[in-house]
Design a protein around this nucleic acid. Sequence first.
DNA 1: AACTAATAACTGACCAGTCAGTTAGTAACA
DNA 2: TGTTACTAACTGACTGGTCAGTTATTAGTT
Lengths: 212, 212
Amino acid sequence: MDAGTPKFRRRKADRPEEIVSAALAVFAEKGFAAAKLDDIARRAGVSKGAVYLYFETKEDVFRAVVERAILPNLSVVKAMAAAHPGPLADLLRGLAGHIAGVVETTPIGGVLKMVVGEARNFPELARVWHDELIVHALGAMAEAIRNAQARGEVKLGDPRTFALQLISPLLVGVLWRETFVPVGAQPFDLPALMRQHIDTLLGGMLTEGARA
Amino acid sequence: MDAGTPKFRRRKADRPEEIVSAALAVFAEKGFAAAKLDDIARRAGVSKGAVYLYFETKEDVFRAVVERAILPNLSVVKAMAAAHPGPLADLLRGLAGHIAGVVETTPIGGVLKMVVGEARNFPELARVWHDELIVHALGAMAEAIRNAQARGEVKLGDPRTFALQLISPLLVGVLWRETFVPVGAQPFDLPALMRQHIDTLLGGMLTEGARA
DNA sequence: AACTAATAACTGACCAGTCAGTTAGTAACA
DNA sequence: TGTTACTAACTGACTGGTCAGTTATTAGTT
């Protein structure tokens, strides 16, 4: 062949990472079943056969994608777990800003959509996400809320439910962006949404005058 | 053949309904691509060929399922559109109870999961849901909130964002039930969740003492 | 009532296309 | 030159969609 441009490079160390990145893009766009291994391979700059040098099956690739999407977020969980002692309001505002930023700059939204969409076909995947990420995140938030309740900062009520109330608009905002914005829906500004949400949830939605 | 047990019955009028019901169950469980037409047909008590007497393609069946899931909810939208003039708190409490009930007694949760999961592969489906259901529901809520703001009941802030804040926990609760409860997650009591959420969002999460 | 003809709802075997996974062989690098 | 990362052609299983034939049902005739 042409000696000037080799047909391929041997780069064993980098391939898995590249394949997982390509797979993330394709899976997030198409979902598991509709994603073709040929597309993933082409996007990663290798042949389909090469994918099978590094992964056993398509499921195996999918698993790698979903699990990798957890890692960058463990730091967030850890930060939350660092049991911020100050006023809950400060913690929540900082946290919401941080998470909204992560959500806007990483493809975690696409992964979330995948986990929701493929949960029945890959229960163990939903289990990994639940056990390794969600339980910890929700638990840390609930713990912080419980502490705030003990300090008399926060009213009575189920802390886990409070935690869900706090993050729900962000999750819905992400799914909204992934699902409806591509078909013409008016997008939400996620950081602004979370700012208003935290303020409202903390301070109350009704004015003083109308409050029961 | 055996004259006692006929091989099939001719029931043209009932078939489409039965096929759509069967398809709803299979699609909600497997997602679009993983759902086999043979399964849908068997579940509906007919052969695969019979499905094609009533629907053009698999996509066509899917469309019918998703569109039918909109109808029962138009009444809810209408009820909201009946621009409740009284205090916003009453409207929201009644509405939340109603919607939580609908969500608990109908398979709309499964359909929502499908719409989210297959949005990329079926954009026109996401469009239908957005244009015919979500825009109206969100718009009606935003309108009620805007009116309440005009009456001085509610603080300043984007009404559409307020509406999203209000319904988000319900949506997340549904997706939670569909995605994580089957793999062992602790479920949420949706009506209770919404009661606490409405109360909190309306009245404020912080105690009087801690309020900024 | 009983028999027959006509209709259309329905079946199930089949086909054509697709795609996950395999492997024989080639090219890159030591 | 030997080793192996990699390619590209291949296979086999699976499934959406088709259609020739079958059977339930109704209408017509005696």
